[in-house]
Amino acid sequence: MKIALPVDQKTMDSPISPSFGRAPYFLVVDTEGGDFEAVANEAAMAPGGAGIKAAQKIADLGAEVLITYRCGQNAHDVLSAAKIKLMRAVAGTAGEVVALFQEGKLEELTQIHPGFHGRGGM
């Protein structure tokens, strides 16, 4: 199963990015075998609709799960249409968070914010 995470750096040691749509990179981890790949987030500098574009990317990468601190309404609409499961990130490196997910220790992300829409998002 492929898991995606928004991250600040391109490694498994990276912290999870506080933003989803504006994260600099996405990490896609294959739980079978542990292969991973870092992908630049082209939506990071989008003039608008970063969440939508980022969610499109996650869907195109074939991820089934997204682990993130937060997610806006528009991104959520795309992710749910793509049937991608949302899990709430916790403090730690990407590697640690993925391990916690595999141990069943992460909760589902149910709090969806209405979006920042041109207001920065931090």
Binding site: A43, P47, G48, G49, A50, A55, Q56, A59, V78, A81
Partner: peptide, 8 residues
């Protein structure tokens, strides 16, 4: 402006 998305 990312007003469109194609998924599922």
């Amino acid at each position: 402006f990312n007003a469109l998305s194609y998924v599922g």
